[in-house]
Simulated assay, not measured.
Amino acid sequence: MARHAGPVVQDADFEELVADGAAAPVQGWAFDWLGGRATEERPPWGYARLVAARMAAVDAALDIDTGGGEVLAEVPDPPRLLAATEAWPPNVPVARTNLRPLGASVVAVTPDAPLPFRDASFELVVSRHPVRTDWPEVARVLRPGGTFLSQQIGPGTVRELSEAILGPLPPPAQRHPEAAVDTARAAGLTVVDLREATLRTVFHDIGAVVWFLRKVVWTVPGFTVAAHRPALARLHERIRAEGPFVAHARRFLIEAVR
């Protein structure tokens, strides 16, 4: 998410802001459109920096759920063999464009299908915010001694925003770091690092909320402006009366070795 502060629009009415957020493109996995409209703290471990350092030390690597390839494209010293997978069709051409300078191949995949690679193909597998981690498949494509490094969404991330639109929700049942550790071990991997972070996330206008909910689809499953207009209007009035809306994103970093 963008790191800028302060809204770019203060006096636009609800309809204009909602239309703005509804019309902006959401392909790829960059959040530059939110510049000046929303901010999110960065995790302290510096995922992109960690990925770049590990990529420089291996010969073959894979990025799962690459999005538009934005993080991978920052790698200054890519390995000889570099592949990425993406399951959301609009992201695939974006990723191919972004990763062409690195010589990476981007493979369009079907969600929940096995990875389209041979056993023990990669020394390093990485994944930022995967929809779901298929731990047995990760273990299968890793070479002995290879590493899986992933920054993942934690339980109840931006829950405050979900509840502002949907009302009170039960405690989160998924995406707990402890469950990831157990599943990794069950797949034959050794977890060597686990870190967690809670990150302040601020929305300055309802247009930013609409765009975010269109892009980060698990926040409010099935979100549409038409279906959730009354809740959006209430949140708009709350922002106008009380100031920016604050939620908290949850992330964890997990590293495992085969």
Results as ranks from 00 to 15, higher is better:
R258A: 05
L166V: 04
D11V: 01
A24F: 08
V216Y: 15
R234Y: 02
T66S: 12
M1E: 04
A87G: 10
A2W: 02
G167Q: 01
W218E: 10
G167H: 06
P155K: 05
R159S: 09
V58Q: 06
T157E: 04
P116R: 03
V209E: 01
L235T: 10
Q27T: 14
A22D: 15
G69P: 11
D20W: 13
A24I: 15
A23K: 12
R195N: 07
G46E: 09
G167N: 07
D77N: 14
T66V: 13
W211R: 05
A120Y: 09
L194Y: 00
V138L: 13
A83T: 08
T224L: 03
V9E: 14
P114F: 03
F31T: 09
E255P: 07
A23I: 09
R96G: 03
D193T: 11
T190W: 10
R214S: 11
L169R: 10
E237R: 14
L189K: 09
A52C: 06
P111C: 13
L235N: 12
R143C: 08
H204A: 14
D77I: 11
G154M: 01
V257D: 14
R54D: 13
A186R: 13
A231E: 15
A180W: 04
L235P: 09
V92E: 05
E70N: 14
T224A: 01
L115R: 06
V217E: 15
T39W: 01
V191A: 04
F203D: 00
P43F: 12
G35W: 07
P79F: 00
R140E: 05
R132Q: 12
D112Q: 14
A2N: 00
E16Q: 14
F252W: 12
T110S: 13
A56K: 00
P170N: 04
A180R: 01
P136C: 08
A256E: 07
T85N: 06
P116M: 02
A187Y: 06
P79H: 01
R238N: 07
H204K: 05
P90F: 08
L81Q: 15
A231G: 10
D20K: 11
V131Y: 15
R80Q: 12
V75S: 02
P171I: 12
L99N: 03
A38I: 01
A180I: 02
V58A: 05
Q152T: 04
T147H: 14
A56D: 08
F245L: 07
T224Q: 02
E255D: 09
R100S: 08
L166W: 03
H228I: 01
V202S: 03
